[in-house]
């Protein structure tokens, strides 16, 4: 199980704001293996979001190379990146980011639509994913009829539905009360035990503690990397 999933080498990201270029990341080297459970911590403005966007293929680095399962992400165009996001990455956001006027089931089906699956196959797999987050009984409800915890479960089901190589969570408990947050973290732990690779951005110590490895980012650089297997 030592095969490398994410391989970042000398990654830098520079934003050209009005006059001064902002160095969000400076020469970051990072390797993450399959089935790792990693948390990224850091104060706001440290560059952890930028790192996550690059790993999630939402953004491309200004310099350096990024291999995801051996594929050279740093050379890809927008459409190829979209396909990578669709097949290999599952996002879980702090604000859930569900489509408000679509049922839980439809929200979970969405990535499969972009993969071009037939509606029967979509329905089957979306129901399975909702089952994994124990929400099949709420599948026909719209997000506004669900509690915060339930919404995050729908989002997790959506992230899982395409069997991605990587689950990327950005402050997944940030909008939840502590009890619900604990439930969601339990779900992440289970997913990790089932073989999923999880990368989680958080600023809460007790959330980060669920991960087996914690990376601290400061001023666009990795300040500390604890628990590397």
């Amino acid at each position: 199980m030592k095969d490398i999933l994410i391989d970042l080498r000398q990654i830098s990201k520079v934003y050209d704001t009005d006059k001064v270029p902002v160095h969000a990341l400076r020469n970051v080297d990072l390797q993450i293996n399959h089935n790792e459970y990693v948390s990224i911590m850091g104060p706001s403005g440290s560059g952890k979001s930028t790192l996550m966007n690059i790993i999630g293929c939402l953004d491309t680095p200004s310099e350096g190379s990024y291999l995801l399962e051996g594929a050279e992400v740093h050379t890809m165009d927008d459409n190829t990146l979209a396909r990578i996001r669709n097949k290999k990455i599952g996002f879980v956001f702090q604000t859930f980011n569900l489509l408000p006027r679509a049922s839980a089931l439809h929200n979970v089906e969405l990535p499969l639509i972009y993969s071009g699956l037939s509606s029967q196959e979509r329905k089957k797999r979306a129901e399975e994913a909702l089952d994994r987050v124990k929400l099949s009984h709420r599948k026909d409800h719209n997000p506004n009829e669900l509690s915060g915890g339930q919404r995050q479960r729908v989002a997790i089901a959506r992230a899982l539905v395409n069997d991605p190589s990587l689950l990327l969570a950005d402050e997944p408990t940030g909008n939840l009360d502590s009890e619900t947050g604990a439930d969601i973290m339990k779900l992440f732990d289970e997913l990790h035990n089932n073989g999923n690779t999880i990368l989680m951005v958080t600023h809460e110590e007790h959330i980060a503690a669920h991960a087996k490895r914690t990376i601290h980012i400061l001023d666009g650089q990795i300040a500390q990397d604890k628990g590397v297997e």
């Binding site: 999630g56 939402l58 927008d78 459409n79 979209a82 396909r83 996001r85 669709n86 097949k87 996002f91 980011n97 569900l98 489509l99 969405l110 990535p111 972009y114 993969s115 959506r158 395409n162």
Partner: peptide, 12 residues
């Protein structure tokens, strides 16, 4: 943004 993040291409 949501659609793009889960894999909708620009063309879609």
């Amino acid at each position: 943004g949501i659609r793009k993040s889960i894999g909708a291409t620009n063309r879609i």
